[in-house]
Simulated scan of single mutants.
Amino acid sequence: MAQIDGMLLAVLIDADNAQAAIIGELLNEVAAFGIATVKRAYGDWTTPSLAGWKKTLHDHAIQPIQQFQYTTGKNATDSALIIDAMDLLHGGRLGGFCLVSSDSDFTRLATRIRESGLVVYGFGEKKTPKPFVAACNRFIYTEVLRKGDVAPTLEAESPQALIKSLREAIAACAEDDGWAFLGSVGQWLVKNDPAFDPRNFGYKKLGELVRAQKVLEVDVRRTSENPNSSILYVRAKPSKKPA
């Protein structure tokens, strides 16, 4: 049997709270985290509101899971997704889950999966309630996955709040000389805010984001292992002493 490299992931989509138009870009994002061995979309597929999903399901080999709405006002789709997630969790084959929804009802599911030692990647719109975002290891706002250029700034944070977060991350990761490896800074930022993403601020990469901050400076260093490759270090610019 061929060896598969990469974390095995289950992608579970709440079709009532996700847009079919961004699923291709979303699965490309998932591919950066691991291998989507399970791809399921949940909803009442007899309703006209989900008719636009048909081509997306076929194009990306996503299995539609039918769930009738038995009672008005009760979301049977959420229950079906949660039950399947727990079955997959106890199956023991997966390394993580990708939960695609903007619904806070999945907050406890994300927490439960993480309690079992697995990784949770969340995908939802900017309106997603903070408790669900915080329950995930990483949360990607689907607005940045839409085709075209990186979306304009989506974050509600002020520039001062962004600078504060960057300064705190740099201080936490800095070496004695004040310089911090940018990769470590990025990891710190995501650990403290699962929704942190340079694309939320209009930049494709963290390096582009920090270069744009006048209070920070970036140092490009060559690696001893490969002189043709480089890594970035960042630090807060020293404050000017009064004359």
Rank of each mutant, 00 (worst) to 15 (best):
M1H: 13
G6I: 06
M7A: 15
L9H: 14
D14S: 07
N17D: 04
A18I: 01
A18P: 02
Q19I: 05
E25Q: 12
F33P: 02
I35Q: 15
V38E: 06
K39E: 02
D44A: 10
W45T: 02
W45M: 09
L50T: 11
A51K: 15
K55E: 15
H60E: 04
I62F: 07
Q67N: 13
Y70K: 04
G73T: 02
K74P: 03
N75T: 06
A76W: 01
A80H: 05
L81F: 00
I82C: 09
I82N: 00
A85N: 06
D87H: 09
L89P: 07
G92H: 15
G96P: 07
C98W: 01
V100G: 01
D103M: 12
R108M: 10
L109S: 05
A110V: 06
R114L: 12
S116F: 04
G117N: 11
P129S: 11
P129K: 08
K130E: 15
P131D: 08
P131I: 10
R138H: 15
R146V: 13
K147E: 12
K147I: 08
P152H: 09
L154G: 13
P159D: 14
P159N: 11
S165F: 09
E168G: 02
A169C: 07
I170E: 10
C173I: 03
F181T: 03
S184T: 09
Q187Y: 06
W188Q: 10
L189C: 11
K191L: 08
N192S: 11
N192Y: 01
D193H: 07
N200C: 10
G202P: 12
K205T: 15
L209K: 03
R211F: 03
L216H: 01
R222P: 00
N228P: 01
S229P: 00
Y233V: 04
Y233L: 15
R235Y: 03
R235G: 08
P238A: 15
S239M: 11
S239D: 12
K241L: 14
K241W: 04
